[in-house]
Amino acid sequence: MTVALEIENLTKDYEVGFARKRRVRALDGLTLTVERGEIFGFLGANGAGKSTTMKLLMRLIYPTAGRASILGCDINDIAMHARIGYLPEHPYFYDYLTAREFLEYCAELFGYTRTDCRQRAAALLALVHLDDKSWDKQLRKFSKGMLQRVGLAQALVNDPEIVFLDEPMSGLDPVGRREIRDLIASLRHKETTVFFCSHILADIEVLCDRAAILQKGRLAHAGRLEDLRGRAGTRAMELVVAGATAEQLRAALQPLPAAQLTQTPGGARIEVPSERDVDAALAALRDCGARLVSVQPVGNPLEDLFVANQN
């Protein structure tokens, strides 16, 4: 696999105060590598430095120290920006333009022909599920969710090799979230690399191959989601069963003293301390004729890791 994004010791200090200026470190020596074709989650609480990183990569702000390269080119190489897409946080676009005009304008900046711009704009607006009655409405009349969709469309207008999404799901209703999530997942099939910031763990868990957790400007963790979950400790598993009495279940689970049984109105809930015990528990349950309803991990290890980092 080749490298899509390489960040080396990226640091950003902001000067605050008017008379007595002091420096505040927003990003502290971030080093990170994202491979081509992967969906990379960039997690962090508000103010952790996620958007600062994005803005540094988009050359909206300049680093105090360190360097970064996208698709093998330095971030200051303007030509490289023809191969990437960016959705800013809280997207604000020219509110005097219609959605269609805005997308055509964006496509024109990439140098596409007029016809091509028109085709791209229409196809992308359809792709992000924007109601076609809104295509020719000025953006000032758009809701936040609709703007988010337009934002995603403009980020994809040049068919980018890598796309940077800053909080792509914010402001969307559950249906919208699902649609955008599916859309991001579908980028994987085009081998588009996705680097996206979020503080919503569910989105990261569903979409990402790898993730990094940023805490107060420093990289706290980075790696595959499975590894990150592993760092949070062993995961207890929960089995929900029906079709057997508590006595039958208790008898069946004799060989597993660590399993905890709780009766529920429809059946029982069994908690085993690790994934390794699930196999044995399932075998025991089958023997006593119980019907399996669900198996799932207890708690969210990624959330535990995220919260642990904040304190």
Binding site: K55, M58, R59, L60, I78, A79, M80, H81, A82, I84, G85, Y86, L87, P88, H90, P91, Y92, F93, Y94, C106, L109, F110, G151, Q154, A155, N158, F164
Partner: peptide, 13 residues
Amino acid sequence: RRTLYAILAKPVG
């Protein structure tokens, strides 16, 4: 209005 963020991320000097 931060409208220039999306524009400057494109190949525009």
